[in-house]
Design a protein around this nucleic acid. Structure first.
Lengths: 289, 289
DNA sequence: GGGGTGGCTCCTGCATGCAAGATGGCGCTA
DNA sequence: TAGCGCCATCTTGCATGCAGGAGCCACCCC
């Protein structure tokens, strides 16, 4: 089984950022990307391509993002490229230097921990808002249906199921956020979930590859169900606590994954995370550009 | 007394956004502004000026921010202006249109409420982090000293004291955030506090002008003290709850202020808030540009 | 031999010209 | 008279040229 898993992993690895991207665009995110579906503008073309390259580790963290090489690489002019770089800085993927210019940002393991905790705080707030303010029955039914579909997939091991699980999980969290009816909260959460390791499906990859952590899917499903129950019963504090704990599942996965560096390094955005002891990533030379 | 208050109010109104600006720059915010102190670049020049104009209500919410008029107005070229507009969009002050271009964003009273609640959630998380992770005694002493200085000002009614209070209050909240030692949390909070009505000193103006709400300063001071106590005792949940409730003081002020439209309309950023029933702001014509 | 200084090169920030698309108004037609 | 379509203008998106500044290397002086 492990063999088949390893064989089909690349497809899943490709799917993950795309799913996340879909969520970013379809939910709230920057209206620019929402309005221009594909590569309508050079800016979005550059943003999408750069984000993909950063996630896939083609730029080491700390690498300088000089404009002229990127112009040659992406085929866009400097003007839209600069807008794209500014966008990625706001997303947190790049860091601007005092003297000008950008470098790929580096994240510590503590940053990852905080990002996950912070997502729990914000999703907890969303769950509390939903419980306190009430949710139309129809909307709640949609959430229930999503989770029931998830239930059928939890125990299956094939990879079509896994991809569907990823999508449904994103969908569940998106529906939950929508129930809060708070644009500012959505915006704040998007600012966190834009980081590749902070989204609700970030470390799910580990659950697929490492059978020991597959139980987490069962737990996650139960937490979803309890969350729905709490919202339905208008139990705000319980809903908030459940959502926080639910996010902390990713913390467990983080710990599992740092013990299995090979799994971690195949995750999108792994090259951005600097681990304290071991070799950071594959390439020994940090600055090829 | 009320006379003197009204006479000196404009100075305070001018001071408020400047203080907030200082906090944004000095804390974490966008590294661009941190690196270039004054108007080193045309971008920051445009951002600062536009933000000031939006806060002071020179653009009505919904007004289109066309580039060429702004170029003539600000004396910068279109290239840095576009960067500045993108920056303000990320701050949440502008909204981008599907067809291109930006308009000044409009906020409902519910948005204001959510922003305040959200600030409470994030500051609560900061307080919890500080309590859970521990704070060096020296740093805690600094927070105590700040709050003791505030204590001396709570009962005074002159406006030098008031300006000092504003500054000290910002300082207190900045120190608290620093104690959390979480760059991502700081970033998330900055994303909320950038909104003119969401910062920790947003509605303090009401407390100065309306004697009935002056008690709130006393309550706020006590909450600060309790917050310090909770952090010192490593009581994370208590610290979180206190910080949330502390933010909700601003909700009280919001309610007070919507009853006194004249006070509200002199606040920075008031023109961005659409109130459900009454006339939106002073100017009857929404589009002077 | 080491440190400081001068020059050079690369890079970013800014301005402006051009083109495509959207929007609004006006006129024509049914 | 109302609706539709076309045209003109305005506005944004993009590309490129230019200048200023920071960083680096080499060379010279102490």
């Amino acid at each position: 089984m492990q063999g088949e898993v390893a064989t089909r992993l690349p497809a899943v690895l490709e799917a993950a950022p795309r799913t996340s991207e879909f969520r970013r665009r379809s939910l709230a995110g920057t209206a620019i990307e929402l309005a221009r579906p594909a590569h309508r503008t050079q800016i979005t073309k550059a943003v999408l391509r750069l984000r993909e390259m950063i996630f896939s580790g083609e730029f080491s963290s700390g690498a300088r993002m000089s404009e002229l090489p990127l112009v040659a690489l992406l085929g866009v002019s400097r003007t839209p490229l600069r807008l794209a770089l500014a966008e990625l800085e706001h997303e947190g993927l790049l860091r601007s230097l005092p003297a000008g210019g950008y470098v790929v940002r580096e994240f510590t393991q503590g940053d990852v921990r905080d990002a996950i905790e912070l997502r729990g705080v914000l999703e907890g707030t969303a769950a509390r808002f939903a419980a306190e303010r009430g949710v139309p029955a129809r909307e709640l039914a949609g959430l229930v249906a999503t989770n029931q579909t998830i239930r059928a997939l939890v125990h299956r091991a094939d990879y079509e199921s896994f991809e569907r699980y990823l999508h449904l999980n994103e969908d569940f969290h998106a529906r939950l956020m929508k129930m809060a009816r708070s644009p500012l909260l959505t915006r704040a959460l998007d600012g966190i979930s834009a980081l590749p390791f902070a989204g609700p499906s970030a470390f799910i990859l580990a659950e697929a590859e490492l059978p020991a952590s597959r139980d987490i899917l069962i737990i996650a499903h139960r937490q979803h169900a309890d969350l729905i129950d709490a919202i339905e019963r208008r139990q705000g504090a319980r809903a908030e606590g459940l959502a926080r704990e639910h996010a902390r599942l990713a913390l467990s996965n983080l710990e599992i994954v740092v013990e299995h560096r090979d799994v971690l390094q195949r995750m999108p955005g792994a090259s951005l995370i600097s681990l304290p002891d071991a070799a950071p990533v594959s390439t020994p030379e940090p600055d090829p550009a």
